[in-house]
Write a protein that binds this DNA or RNA. Structure first.
Lengths: 205, 205, 205, 205
DNA sequence: AATGAATGAGTCTTCATTCAT
DNA sequence: AATGAATGAAGACTCATTCAT
C-alpha cells in the first residue's frame, strides 16, 4: 500500500561523506550498547541519545532496529570469514590450514568480544537466528572442507568433518567467552589453548 | 484482611496441591514460550492467556517475570547436575567417570532442547548471566575435578582441567544445538559423537 | 507468531457491568471527537485523556483505533437500518413505505449529525470504505426493493430502482449536512423537505 | 544571500518554465495519492519520493502540505464552475440552462473521480471544510439563481431553490461515486441518469 | 485463589518541517 | 533550485505490574 520511505528501501540510499560517518557512528554505538545491555533492553532512544542526535536520524539511516542489528551481524560474520581466509593464506598443507583457521577464529573472537556476545544472543532469537544460521553454515562449510581433505590425505582419523567443525566452533566460543570476558588470558594464549584442545581433545597426546 | 506478602518473599509460600499444579503449569508453559519466542518477546499476558487464567494468578505464584525465569534456570541447572551425578555413579575409574559425565550432559541437553535454548539466552542477558555463571561454575568444577584426578593418575596428558571442562561444555552445547534442533541425530548417537570428539579432538587417534 | 492478547481476540471478551460502562463511555467520547476533529487528527491519547483513564484502558477494550472506529460505524449503520424498518412498519402500500423510509432516514441523519459526519469521512478512507460499502449496499437494497415493487404496481414510472435509491441517499445526506449543521431547519421540517424533493425532483408537480 | 520567503507568501513566486512544470508535476502526483490513499495517510516524503525529487523541493513550491491541498481544492472548484458555465452558454431558456448545468456538473465529476474524492474528504476535515463551503456556496448560488428564475417564469413548481440546488449536488455526488468508481456506466449515460432523476424525482412523470 | 480492570512509563516508528550546502 | 541531513514532537501500541472485588 504505502511506498516505503527513507532507509526502508532495499537498496542503500546515496550518502555523503558526513552521512557515512554518522551511519558508522550509530552502528558503533549500537554495537556497544547491544553487547553491554542486550538487544531488547537497549532502546532506539538510548542509542540516538548516546550519539547525541535526534530520533529521526536513526530511521534516516536504518529501516528499523531489527535491520540495524542484522546489518551488524552480517558485517561481523563477513569480517570473521575474511580474517580467517586471509590468515590461512595459500597453504598446501591441510593440517596447517586447519590450525591457522582455528587460531584466526579464536583470535577474532578474542578481539571482538562485543560481536561475539551479539552472535550469542542472535542465535537465541528466532528473528535473527536465520541470519546466524546462514553465516555459520558458510563458516562451518569452509572448515569442514579442509577437514575432509585432511581425512582423505590420511592426516587425521576419519570422522564426520562437519561435526568436527561444529565442535571447533563450540570450543572457540566457550573458551573465548570464559577467558576473554574475565580477562584471564591474552588473545594469543587463548588461541594456542583453543588450537591445542581442538586438536587433541582431553585424552589426545 | 490478609497481609499481601504474596510471592515476594524469598521463601515459597505454602501451596495446596492444586496450587502446586497451577504453578507447574505456568512454569511449563512459560518455558515453552520463552524457548520458542524468546524471553523478552514473550509477555506475561501471553503466558496467562495461554494457560487460561487471569493475570493476577501469575503474580500470586511468582514475584515477577524475571523471578520466574530465574527459577526455571535454577531448577534446570540443578536437574542437569543431578542427572549427571546419578549417571556417573560410584565409579573409581576417572576416565569412565569423565566419559559418563560427558555422555549424561549431552543426553540431558538433547532431551531438553527448550531448556538448552533458555540457557543460551540467559548467558547473553546480564540480568540472568549471573545465575548462569554460578551454575556453570559448579558444573565445570565437577568436571575439572575429575579431569584433574585423571591427570594425576597419569591417565590423560597434563592440561588445564578447567579449560578442558569448558571445551567439553562448548562442544556439547554446539553439537546439541545443531544436531538436535535439526533432528539430524538421535540423542544417543549425538552423545556418542560428543564423547568421541571431546576425547580425541580432530587429530586424536 | 504472537498470540494476540487483550481485545485483539476476534470474540469480545467477557465484561463486567463496570467494564461495559467504560467501553460505552470510550465509544461515546471517541465518536464525539472523531466527528468534531476528524479520525486521523484525534489521537488515542486525547481520547483516554478526555475520558480520564490510562492509555492501557483503550487497548483493553479495543484492539486498535481502527477497530474502534469500525465498530462505531457498524453499530451506527445497524441502528439506522433498524430505525428505518421500525418506522416503515407493516404497510401494504409501497408508496407509503417508501416515503416512511425516506423520512425515517432523514430524521435519523438529522438526529445523529456526528454519526453522519463519520459516515462521510469513512467513505473517503479506503480502510473504512469497505465497511461503508457493505452497510450502504444493504440500505440501498432495501429501498430499491420497495421502489421496484412500486414500479411493478404501476405506482411510479419505471426507472432504475437502485439508482433512485442512491439518489435518495444523496439528497438526504446533502440536505441534512447543510441544513442541520447550520441549524437552519428542525429535523421534521428537514424530513418533509427531503421527502418532497425525492418524490418530485425539481420539475415534478 | 536571498531572503528565504519561499512559498510562504500568499502571492506565488515567479517561476521559470521548468519550475512551473515541477510544480504541476507535484500537484498531479499529490492529487493521485491523496485520492488513492487519503490526505493524512499520504506523507510529504511519499510525494517527493514518488516524483523523484528531494524533500526541499516540496517546500520550495508549497508553504505546507495543507496549502498544497487547499490549492488543489481551489483549482478544482474553479475548473468545475468554469466548465459548468461554459456548458450552459448564453441560453435564454432557464430550464435548458438548469439541465445543461446539471449535465455538465455530472460529467465533470465523472471525468475527475480523484478530485471528487478529494472534495468528499475535504468536507469532513474542519481544516478544509471552510474552503469547501465557500466553493460550494458559489456553485449552489449559481444553480439556485437559475432555479429561482424558472420558478418566477412558472416553468417549475415553487420550491426553495437553494434546497433544490443542494439536492442536485447530492444526487450528482452520490450517483457519480457509485456508478463511476465501479465503472458501471459511462460518463454520458451517468449524466443522463442524473438529469432525469433530478428533474423528476422518483414519482415524477 | 483468582479475576477483570487499570496504570503509565516506555517502545518503535512516522512525519511535517527546517537547514546547511 | 535542489539535496541530503536533521529535528523532535507526536503517534499507535505494549507490557510488567498492581488493585479492588
Amino acid at each position: 500500500m504505502k511506498t516505503p520511505t527513507d532507509a526502508s528501501q532495499g537498496s542503500e540510499r546515496r550518502l555523503t561523506a558526513r552521512g557515512r560517518e554518522r551511519r558508522e557512528q550509530l552502528i558503533a554505538y549500537a554495537t556497544l550498547r547491544f553487547a553491554r545491555d542486550g538487544f531488547h533492553p537497549t532502546s532506539v532512544s538510548e542509542i540516538v541519545d548516546g550519539v547525541g542526535v535526534g530520533k529521526g536520524v536513526f530511521y534516516w539511516y536504518f529501516a528499523s532496529k531489527d535491520e540495524l542489528f542484522i546489518e551488524i551481524l552480517r558485517a561481523a560474520q563477513q569480517d570473521l570469514r575474511r580474517t580467517q581466509l586471509k590468515a590461512i593464506g595459500p597453504t598446501d598443507d591441510p593440517l596447517e590450514a586447519i590450525e591457522a583457521g582455528i587460531r584466526a577464529g579464536a583470535l577474532w573472537m578474542a578481539e571482538h568480544p562485543d560481536l561475539r556476545r551479539l552472535f550469542e544472543f542472535a542465535r537465541t532469537d528466532e528473528t535473527f537466528a536465520k541470519v546466524m544460521r546462514s553465516g555459520q553454515r558458510q563458516l562451518v562449510a569452509q572448515a569442514a572442507q579442509r577437514l575432509s581433505t585432511a581425512v582423505e590425505h590420511g592426516l587425521i582419523p576419519p570422522r564426520d568433518p562437519e561435526a568436527l567443525a561444529h565442535a571447533i566452533l563450540g570450543i572457540t566460543n566457550q573458551l573465548t567467552m570464559v577467558y576473554i570476558d574475565s580477562a584471564q588470558r591474552r588473545p594469543e594464549e587463548l588461541a594456542d589453548l583453543v588450537v591445542s584442545i581442538c586438536r587433541n581433545g582431553y585424552a589426545g597426546s
